[in-house]
């Protein structure tokens, strides 16, 4: 006569289903945990990118060109390049405080017969550990 435990081992084959379902659930859990981890990583990565990407610094440089350089070109055309040089010097120092390099180069200054500046070209350079930005614009007064 067989014992009860022997009977269970030989006759009860629900174990197959249990093992397969356990396998499926563990694969599912592993997949979900992977998805969760990816999610966290993507969140962290995108947050760091937003924190580090210097869009405001670049925007400030463009704003200075549009406002200040145009102001000096209109109001002080005879000393325009001197003011631009001083402005550039201070901007470079300010950005260096954050480990970045910024530069505003003005060239190709065109004047009319009265000595008024009619247009100039400006190269805006910004560089840090994340971004190398270079943009050339022509400003027409």
């Amino acid at each position: 006569m067989k014992s009860m435990s022997t009977k269970k081992f030989t006759d009860d084959e629900n174990g197959q289903i249990l093992i397969i379902m356990a396998l499926l659930i563990s694969v599912l859990l592993a997949g979900l945990s992977l998805l969760y981890t990816q999610n966290l990583l993507a969140g962290t990565e995108s947050a760091l990118t937003q924190l580090n990407f210097p869009k405001n610094e670049i925007r400030d440089l463009n704003r200075i060109v549009e406002e200040q350089l145009v102001y000096y070109a209109i109001n002080n055309p005879e000393n325009f390049l001197t003011y631009v040089r001083e402005l550039d010097k201070q901007i470079t120092m300010m950005y260096a405080l954050h480990g970045a390099y910024a530069d505003i180069d003005v060239y190709d200054v065109k004047t009319n017969i009265n000595g008024d500046i009619t247009s100039f070209s400006v190269k805006i350079i910004f560089s840090n550990a994340v971004v190398d930005y270079e943009h050339t614009r022509q400003i027409v007064i």
Binding site: I20, V27, G31, Q38, L40, A42, G43, T44, A47
Partner: peptide, 24 residues
Amino acid sequence: GVLILVVAYFLFQSTLIVSPLSGD
């Protein structure tokens, strides 16, 4: 099981879910 794995694979390949879970 294979079906779930295939779905999970395509999910990872095709989407990037930006989560607000990070403290950053």
